[in-house]
Amino acid sequence: MVSPPAISFEKLNKYYGKFHVLKDIDLEVAKGERIVICGPSGSGKSTLIRCINRLETHQSGRLIVDQCEMNNTPSTVRRIRDRVGMCFQHFNLYPHLTALENCTLSLIYTRKMPPKEAKQRAMEYLARVRMDGFAQKYPSQLSGGQQQRVAIARSLCIQPEVMLFDEPTSALDPESISEVLDVMADLAIGGMTMICVTHEMGFARKVADRVVFMDAGEIVEIADPETFFTSPSHERSARFLQQIINH
């Protein structure tokens, strides 16, 4: 028996007013699959993954996350958000909470976990991103890479079915980039379903099962990384790769 997909988009469309941001998106992500989404800025990559936990709403088509169809019902949105973890470009740690408190907040207050247990779980995941030594630090006392690793731990604490990464390394210096990518690669080895919007082509090549290339709100090409990087089948993806390699 084939297990149902973790996420599936069916003819999904989204508009900002008259502007058509996402055009007839069809995409299925299997459980445990690692997807990298790339494409020029403004192509709708971030918007696409932000639909998955309802940070953006779509106007038509269907979106099914972990066998639950996304709609406007608050309970559905809650149910889906409960299974989806997300990391942002600018980490978005709460500045007034320590690394540990950032991780335990939603465990204690949304999931009603006893504080002791929440703390234990948070320390476990902080250790996995090698940040357990910084549990009592505030975000302002951490480097960008460290903050992003805490943010990853915070998302992992809820033990999500799917992890979304929205350009997790775009705001980092080169040294921090590799420490964050290492953590993400570890996650991939652990079998986490991951969707990453990123420009890190090395990471895509090494970790991704499939690469999705988007341009102007459309999925132009979906291919395994080897094919995508060596012989892209569309002129637009070839041009994009050319530009990235030239820099």
Binding site: N53, R54, L55, R78, R81, D82, V84, G85, M86, F88, H90, N92, Y94, P95, H96, L105, S106, Y109, T110, R154, I158
Partner: peptide, 25 residues
């Protein structure tokens, strides 16, 4: 708005978001 989005992504209830995040900040 990034704080508000984080509250949503972490599935915080309205009250928790207000009491534990918005109010202290």
């Amino acid at each position: 708005t990034s704080v508000i989005e984080t509250n949503a992504a972490l599935n915080l209830t309205r009250w928790t978001a207000f009491r534990r995040v918005l109010l202290p900040i």
